[in-house]
Write a protein that binds this DNA or RNA. Structure first.
Length: 504
RNA sequence: CGGAGUGUAGCUCAGCCUGGUAGAGCACUACGUUCGGGACGUAGGGGCCGUGGGUUCAAAUCCCGCCACUCCGACCA
């Protein structure tokens, strides 16, 4: 049986159904916020670990800055103020007092504090103290933190008032070095997305009008969701000297002159969990790629009658410890026996909805034959879904089985991206026609509305046209053809290739 | 912050028009039979009907205020 809503029937509700059916998260009673339940947070922890390793391998160190940023800091960088002037949480008082039987804010602060929406300003302030000489450069740090943006219309994992992220901040002596850093980190994001999350992405740059406030260049990775919409999965900014000038990050060069540093910042958020759902989940529930599954293998004992219970539990435990000695992706396999006092059928479907990659069932039948019944999450609707496999063979091949799963998830998503990326649309008229269609799910029949790769003339007036069509330029992809064609919005001659799509 | 809608059990909702002691399904608890593609029987627990006021002998139900949430816009990792 499938979820209440399928992707075809009602895509947005299907998304909610997956989250609750998989016990990943829920809407909190605190307005606009969400609860990460253990299965959802466990996935986040796995993403964190994979990314954190890469961040350290590329020469960065973790540290931590305050959650409160004085209001005046935001006014230092003019463009930054412009872009971030609106939705924020602002602390204006320092205590509560009792008044007419009610608690009311009291102790008004002289200067309001902003709950960080991002930390460029406060980190730049520290950088200005740390950096005096060219010998102090580069500074390369990262922090794992929560941030707050006062969103009006929350969606679980995709847009909530508080979310989790990592933000890297670096300062360099030269333009070239800083620009290279921004690109390197975009590469790290692309690699984690593709190799760990099994989510293919398009690497590129944001158009001028959509850059991070205060940035010289904003790079991004964009992924295609199963409804054909695009989701920004990571972003990396080359900030030039903008923040260095506003925060006075200066150093003395080898030649003895005073120079402003060049800075970068880059981040990915817990939104990645939303993108995972919309990349891999199906009508039965969540599908978690093995590399980030909190449990990669779950063993469900089948107890038909109490007299065999001990025997079956022993067999299950033995299988569990044999599997947990095996390695996948450089770590011991995460496996457990589900010993809860519930019916085994319920357990099996619960783990299916959660998207555990492999669920094994063991009962007295299997003990006699030295076998195990293996169910592979991604093959749920095929005859290969359940297989009876000799115990030793299963144990010995568990790593390659997980690897196959990881790869097949990537391949399916990659095919979706390629199948639904149109390159044959050549005129503004065709473009308008194409995006006037609606669809909820792009798998299956071709010709559904998703991505269009085509020309853009860079005229600022095109922004309005895109708004009318409810699309945007997702990115200017790295691989440019450099051939001339017609802008898909104005029909004017243009060289730049861009990705047009609806977005989250 | 604009436009629309909804508030009744943990969840999904019925009851409201036409006022008269609070309902269903799922979930939960106990016992039994079950358990390998989403079990069944029996018994049970659980609600200040969003909130404040008004009308009335009597309000989930009628009237007024407020609050919250959801959806559509603006904003957005």
């Amino acid at each position: 049986m499938t979820l209440q809503n399928t992707r075809e029937k009602n895509y947005p509700e299907w998304y909610q159904n997956v989250i609750s059916a998989a016990d990943m998260g829920e809407v909190s009673s605190s307005p606009g916020c969400m609860v990460f339940r253990p299965w959802g947070y466990g996935i986040w922890e796995r993403i964190q670990r994979a990314l954190d390793n890469k961040i350290k391998e590329t020469g960065h160190e973790n540290c931590y800055f305050p959650i409160f940023i004085p209001l005046s800091y935001f006014q230092k960088e003019a463009n930054h103020v412009e872009g971030f002037a609106k939705e924020m949480a602002i602390v204006t008082h320092s205590r509560l007092t009792m008044k007419d039987g009610k608690l009311v804010p009291d102790g008004k602060l002289e200067e309001p504090l902003i709950v960080r929406p991002t930390s460029e300003t406060i980190i730049a302030d520290s950088f200005s103290k740390w950096i005096k000489s060219y010998r102090d450069l580069p500074v390369m740090i990262n922090q794992w933190a929560n941030v707050v943006r006062w969103e009006m219309r929350p969606r679980l994992f995709l847009r909530t008032r508080e979310f989790l992220w990592q933000e890297g901040h670096t300062a360099h002596a030269t333009f070239e070095e800083a620009e290279k850093e921004a690109k390197t980190m975009l590469g790290v994001y692309a690699s984690v997305a593709q190799n760990v999350l099994a989510m293919p992405v398009i690497k590129g740059k944001k158009p001028e009008y959509d850059k991070f406030p205060g940035a010289v260049d904003t790079y991004c990775i964009e992924a295609m969701m199963q409804d054909g919409r695009s989701l920004q999965a990571g972003t990396s900014h080359f900030l030039g000297q903008n923040f260095a000038k506003s925060a006075n990050i200066r150093f003395q060069s080898k030649e003895g002159t005073q120079e402003y540093a060049y800075t970068t910042s880059w981040g990915v958020t817990s939104r990645l969990i939303g993108s995972l759902i919309m990349t891999h989940a199906d009508d039965e529930g969540m599908v978690v790629p093995p590399k980030i599954a909190p449990q990669q293998v779950v063993i469900v004992p089948i107890i038909k009658d109490k007299s065999t219970q001990n025997e079956v539990m022993l067999y299950a435990t033995k299988l569990c410890s044999a599997l947990s000695e095996k390695f996948y992706d450089g770590e011991k396999i995460r496996v457990k026996v589900d010993t809860r006092d519930k019916s085994s059928v319920d357990k099996m479907w619960e783990w299916t909805r959660k998207g555990a990659p492999i669920v094994c069932e063991v009962g007295s039948r299997d003990i006699e034959n030295e076998v195990v019944m293996v169910r592979t999450r991604t093959k749920i609707n095929t005859s290969e879904w359940k297989q009876i496999i000799p115990l030793n063979e299963f144990i010995n091949l568990i790593s390659s089985r997980l690897e196959d799963l990881q790869n097949s998830l990537f391949n399916v998503a990659k095919k979706r991206l390629l199948d639904n990326q149109r390159t044959d649309i050549k005129t503004a008229e065709e473009m308008k026609d194409y995006f006037s269609q609606q669809n909820s799910w792009v798998d299956g029949a071709k010709g559904k509305v998703a991505f269009v790769r085509g020309k853009w003339c860079e005229d600022p007036a095109t922004v309005e046209k895109m708004k009318e069509m409810k699309i945007s330029i997702r990115c200017i992809p790295e691989d440019q053809t450099k051939k001339e064609g017609n802008c898909l919005l104005t029909n004017k001659k243009a060289v730049l290739d861009v990705i047009y799509a609806r977005s989250y």
